[in-house]
Simulated assay, not measured.
Amino acid sequence: MKLKPLFLFISIFFCCVKVNADVPRINPDRVKAKAKQSLTFCRQRGYNTRYCILIDMALPSGVKRFVVWDFKKNDTLISGLVSHGCGRNPWSGVWSKDKPAFSNLDGSHCTALGKYEIDGRAGSAWGIHVKYYLTGLEGTNNNALARQIVFHSWEQVAETEVYPNGTPEGWGCPAISNNTMKAVDALLKKQKKHVLLWIYQ
């Protein structure tokens, strides 16, 4: 009879381990490969070669899929949750946490895939009241400025992972949590060259 509590504890422990093991995560090899491609791109274009931002939209929105990559350390410096566009669904809901729609069209309310140049810093009505303009560098995202797609924080984006739930969806901007933005903003303000932001799937 004395073994039952121990057996119960072990069963619960391994059950929890299994659940945690099933949570999707950023693939380290994949993010390193993207970072390597990013560094080549940044060198060719004269962009910042110390940091870049990588967003893996193949992951569900409830897990950390936003990464600030440190080229010098060849490792992740900052990570967090990031929203994607709601598309035809109502704003701020969680409709497409696993399968977002992507579009470059104005009025689509979708996130656009591709490489972006992070441009000027300005005030924002959202989050910590800071935003960065984004210039789309590819045919898949070259309407970013016209669509007013910017990089900002949003109170509805959680500070910790919420999977299997998702992150509330906006109108296509990559929005991160307030605390994550404070760290990223402090870093971006110090950079003299444009930082690359790459949204991929």
Rank of each mutant, 00 (worst) to 15 (best):
V150W: 01
G127C: 08
G166I: 01
A112T: 04
L81C: 15
A125R: 13
H109Y: 11
L137Y: 01
V82W: 04
V94S: 12
L81W: 01
K99F: 14
S177F: 10
A144T: 00
I118N: 03
R147W: 10
D106A: 15
A144H: 00
K99A: 14
W91A: 06
L137S: 03
S83Y: 02
L105G: 15
D98A: 13
K131Q: 14
N89L: 05
T180S: 06
S153L: 09
W171M: 12
S96I: 01
L145F: 11
G139M: 00
K131D: 12
N143F: 01
S103A: 02
T135L: 13
N104S: 11
Y116T: 06
K72W: 07
N104E: 08
V82L: 10
G170W: 00
P100A: 09
N104P: 13
W126F: 05
A125C: 09
I78T: 04
P90T: 10
P174Q: 08
E159N: 07
P90K: 12
A112I: 05
L134M: 07
G166E: 04
S92F: 06
Q156M: 13
N165F: 15
A112F: 02
R121V: 05
F151A: 06
T111V: 13
D75T: 10
N178S: 01
V130M: 07
S83P: 06
V82Y: 03
V82N: 05
T111G: 11
I149D: 00
E161M: 03
G107N: 03
T140F: 04
G127P: 07
Q148V: 12
E159S: 06
G139Y: 00
K73H: 15
